[in-house]
């Protein structure tokens, strides 16, 4: 039980950090490096496209978490004998 709860904690922590860090880093990375340095777009356009890119990355991360939770929970559905009454 302790190893499985540790692994669940690790998975949830990994995905939470990914969901929080990925959109913010995508926003600033695409804004500063990709749009302003490489393409030289204006400030408003680079802001908007970076925001859209970060929202897309956010939803990809959320979809990955939902898929993982769905497949994992189906796998460990039937081990209820460690319930403490």
């Amino acid at each position: 039980m302790s190893t499985s709860s540790l692994s669940i904690f690790k998975t949830v922590l990994y995905y939470s950090v990914f969901i929080i860090i990925a959109p913010i880093s995508t926003f600033f990375f695409t804004k500063i490096v990709f749009f302003e340095k490489l393409l030289g777009t204006s400030s408003v356009a680079s802001n908007v496209w970076s925001a859209i890119a970060s929202i897309i990355v956010l939803h990809i991360a959320l979809g990955m978490y939902i898929m993982r939770a769905y497949s994992d929970a189906n796998k460990v559905k039937s081990d209820k004998e460690d319930k403490v009454d």
Binding site: V12, F27, V48, A51, S54, I55, Y65, A73, K77, K80
Partner: peptide, 29 residues
């Protein structure tokens, strides 16, 4: 009663956190 469902049941919390990220993006813009 069902501690094995933690991973599934965290999803509403993650989705609520995403709402705050929407506000953060617009506030930063």
């Amino acid at each position: 009663m069902r501690p094995e469902l933690i991973m599934k049941s965290i999803i509403p919390v993650v989705m609520a956190g995403i709402i705050a990220i929407y506000g953060l993006v617009v506030a930063v813009l």
